[in-house]
């Protein structure tokens, strides 16, 4: 565990409620550079709520989220994205009418500079920029092994591939922090293994295999993973946070979490 590393994202005393429903109660956690942090918990524990608070969908009533020391609580989602926080969704939220390649190109939005006038004129700046970004997008397509569906409209793709395209879209933003919301939900063993491999490869960085694409070369050193599959979580997470009914009930390494009586109680109930 990399406790000596710099804190990338700090959540302090976060509380979120919808009317009478208290979705998050006083949750605090740190995410450091160089770790995969898993958030687990039974259904409705508030795992996705944390991600939604981080990228600005939900405005928490109390508490503070800081990214590199900068407060991002209640910031607009597109501004959070510009800071370098990308995510995937539990129920795949792709641009269904666009091809795989264009989905990834669309994610380059914050990195591109053309305005609508130079875009409309096209020849010159816009053309040059398109080619530049297309190169990066192709490297990501290559990395995720989705070359064959490059020109397919994502609306017609099967579930497993769509999940992969969504991961690709998040990578195309070249984020510093990657939030993955159940990347393996509804997949078979083989597909899960593929995604787990991609997550670890992204985390570790590919070095000279992709020398011109920083996000693949250097990797994304801070990943938050919300996942239900305990096998995967125990294998790839450096640290685990357990939520139950909006409260953080445990935090620690996979080994510690496995042995934690509170966690066992939350998942399996108490023996009476």
């Amino acid at each position: 565990m990399a406790t000596d590393q710099q804190v990338r994202l700090r959540i302090e005393n976060l509380s979120l409620s919808f009317g009478g429903v208290r979705a998050l109660i006083d949750v605090s956690l740190d995410i450091r550079d160089g770790e995969i942090l898993a958030i687990i918990g039974p259904n409705g524990a508030g795992k996705t709520c944390i991600l939604n608070c981080i990228n600005g969908f939900y405005k928490p009533q109390q508490g503070k989220i800081a990214y590199n020391g900068q407060k991002i609580t209640r910031m607009r989602p597109d501004k959070v994205a510009k800071l370098g926080i990308a995510r995937t969704f539990q129920n795949i939220e792709l641009y269904t009418g666009l091809t795989t390649q264009d989905n990834l190109m669309a994610a380059r939005h914050v990195l591109m500079k053309q305005n609508f006038i130079t875009s409309a004129l096209y020849f010159g700046w816009a053309h040059k920029e398109e080619i530049e970004h297309r190169r990066t997008v192709e490297e990501i397509i290559d990395f995720l092994e989705i070359e064959s569906i490059r020109k397919k409209v994502v609306g017609v793709l099967p579930y497993g591939l769509r999940k992969r395209v969504e991961l690709g879209r998040a990578l195309a933003l070249e984020p510093k922090v990657l939030l993955l919301d159940e990347p393996m939900a509804g997949m078979n063993l083989e597909e899960k293994e593929d995604i787990a491999r991609f997550i670890i490869d992204v985390f570790e960085g590919q070095g000279d295999t992709y020398p011109n694409t920083p996000v693949l070369r250097d990797g994304i050193k801070t990943i938050i993973l919300v996942e239900h599959d305990m096998g995967v979580v125990m294998d790839i997470a450096d640290r685990i946070i357990v939520l139950d009914f909006g409260r953080k009930i445990a935090e620690g390494t996979p080994a510690e979490i496995k042995a934690n009586p509170e966690v066992i109680k939350a998942y399996l109930g108490q023996e009476t």
Binding site: A81, A86, F89, E93, Y95, T96
Partner: peptide
């Protein structure tokens, strides 16, 4: 592409910047 992103999925479009 930003227009299409908004048309197809405005939530995702916002998260993607």
């Amino acid at each position: 592409r930003a227009f299409i992103a908004i048309r197809d999925n405005d939530l995702a479009a916002e998260v993607m910047g």
